[in-house]
Amino acid sequence: MRDFSYVRAATIDEALSAAAMPATMLLAGGTTLIDLAKCGVAEPERVVDISHLKGLDGVRIDGKAATIGALARMSRVAEDPAIKGEFPAISEALWQAASAQIRNMATIGGNLLQRTRCAYFRDPATFPNCNKRNPGSGCAALTGVNRSHAVLGGSSACIATYPGDLAVALTAFDALVHLGDRQVPVDDFFLLPGARPDKEHAMRPGEIITAISVPASPAARRSTFLKVRDRQSYEFAAASAAVGIELGGDGRTITDIRIALGGIATKPWRARAVEDALRGTAFEHDAIKEASRLAVEGAIDHGANHYKIELAPRVVERAILKIGAAA
């Protein structure tokens, strides 16, 4: 880890001015920054600790939306009774992520900004070439070890998977990322890698995440997060799906459906094609199975990650069936 200085921000304004300073990084839970500093990926000269700021860790919920402070810890949000009741997919995404210890440390804002687990990205000493770390230097993963890499949203510059779970659930339910006064839909917040995989989100210099808000909806209330992985726990998703559904008065017409996928794409992946195919149709297994295949339209594999193209639609299908049957 490179030498750095440490200061605590006492106010949000201090945090904001720190965020605009060169070679400065903001420290909240530390689970990404300290890890990547040890890997040699993050090399701040100045670390500004914002984890002690007051007033940014609340969870507020009313009939219209949930607003979650950026410094709220994952565990706190996962256990919040109102989140569990109104947004079960969010709670489930959170408690299935990482470990109990990490969930006690990591904040909601930091969780969104976690970096990819691509092994090439994480090993600058051995692999200097990484477009995410050093734009234009190349991508070792394209022809390397890539069983966990993305089959959707990749480019010739980068196929690194977005690793998080929470953002997948937020994407399904049209959450807004609050950057101070500015609010950005979460689907727009995360950028596709394209030619500049180093640019991961739509934040401007000097901005910080202050909160997340998620509109309440019947689909969010009837939702689930399904995570499939090799190990039973403490692992990132091979494929995951956040699904919410609203059935009409007849109990079988799908009036609203929200689907997002994780573990298979370079950003949290909204499966609008599947939603469009099922919205207004009857809740019926064969149709759901058929429509779920649309989740991986346009997918490109790189050999070892081919299985994700088979797996992801099945995860979507299972999640829809599970939540539909839970009436």
């Binding site: 965020a19 060169p22 839970g29 950026a70 900004l113 976690q114 000097g206 995440i209």
Partner: peptide, 15 residues
Amino acid sequence: MFFGLLLVERPAALG
């Protein structure tokens, strides 16, 4: 966790 990642290449300021 880091917010607003802004890394600027410059020599270490070890005064």
